Simulated scan of single mutants.
Amino acid sequence: MSLVTQLRARLDRSHGLDLDIFESDIRGEDIRARGAAVDAAVLIPVVDRPAPTVILTQRTDELPSHPGQVAFPGGKVDPGDEGPVGAALREAEEEIALPRDRVELVGTTDLYLTGTGFHITPVIGVVPPGIDLVPEAGEVAAIFEVPLETLLDPANYREREIEWQGRLRRYHEMYWEDRRIWGVTASIIMNLSRRLRAATEGSSLSRSDGKNLR
């Protein structure tokens, strides 16, 4: 059974389950109350290796929003896009030169409202290894891969607290080598982890070559 088929099946089985899902951060809740948010999308590109990996980017320090942070390729949904899926594919082409015709779509997962005013739809896609990715110099400082198993393991995350605008904010973070994965990106990953694990608790994603992945 292919990796795409397994991921789709798990997402489908998780529908209707009562899961502990992060819907927004604290400031995102304020934005929801005001009814003002911009539709956006990110692509979660899973590389179909014997041990699958996920492509992530590190944003440049010059960006006005979330400079230097680890993120998925993505951005706001433009009028010419075919919805969030089209936006995610377009942004991945622009940011890391990932051809949209090399992405086999799995589906979308839980929406997330950010404090900066974006209502994000995560789009999951499987891509083959060996694509020559190129960072867009104005936005992307680096492109790297993290094992999917590592990202989905909740034991790798720590819960932290900071005070922001007079309110206590909780967030999750993990480190991969010298890179800090936290905030919105970590929440999107943890939501996906909860869905995939709840769909078949205790089982593994199995490759046809015998490799297993939680």
Rank of each mutant, 00 (worst) to 15 (best):
V46P: 02
H172L: 11
G130W: 06
L63W: 03
D18T: 01
I143G: 04
V106C: 04
E159N: 11
A51G: 04
R170A: 10
R195G: 02
L3V: 15
F118H: 14
P50Y: 03
G107P: 08
I21P: 04
D30A: 14
H119W: 07
R194K: 14
F72M: 11
A97G: 09
A40N: 05
T116A: 07
P154A: 11
E29W: 08
L3N: 07
R195I: 01
R160K: 12
D30Q: 14
S193T: 12
I26P: 01
I188A: 06
I189C: 00
V85N: 01
R194D: 05
G183W: 03
I143Y: 08
P79Q: 07
R214F: 10
R179D: 00
A87T: 03
A37P: 00
H15I: 12
E139D: 10
L192E: 05
I188C: 04
I21Q: 10
I188Y: 00
V106K: 02
E149P: 02
D25F: 14
G75V: 09
G210D: 12
R169P: 00
A199C: 10
R13H: 04
E149A: 15
K211R: 04
L148K: 08
W164A: 06
A141W: 01
G86E: 09
N156K: 14
E149M: 02
P129N: 09
R90S: 02
V126C: 03
I120A: 06
S206R: 14
P64M: 04
D12G: 07
A36V: 15
R13Y: 03
P79R: 07
G107K: 09
S206L: 13
M190L: 15
A142M: 10
V103I: 15
T53I: 02
A88G: 12
A141F: 02
G166T: 04
R32E: 14
P99N: 10
L17C: 09
H66T: 09
T5A: 12
T108N: 03
G68N: 06
R169Y: 13
V77N: 07
D61I: 11
E29D: 05
L89D: 01
T109V: 15
V103A: 06
S24Q: 06
G130Y: 14
A186I: 13
M190T: 09
V140H: 04
V46G: 01
W176S: 09
A198Q: 06
A142L: 13
E95D: 14
R34L: 15
E159R: 15
S208P: 02
R207D: 13
W176L: 05
R180H: 11
E163A: 04
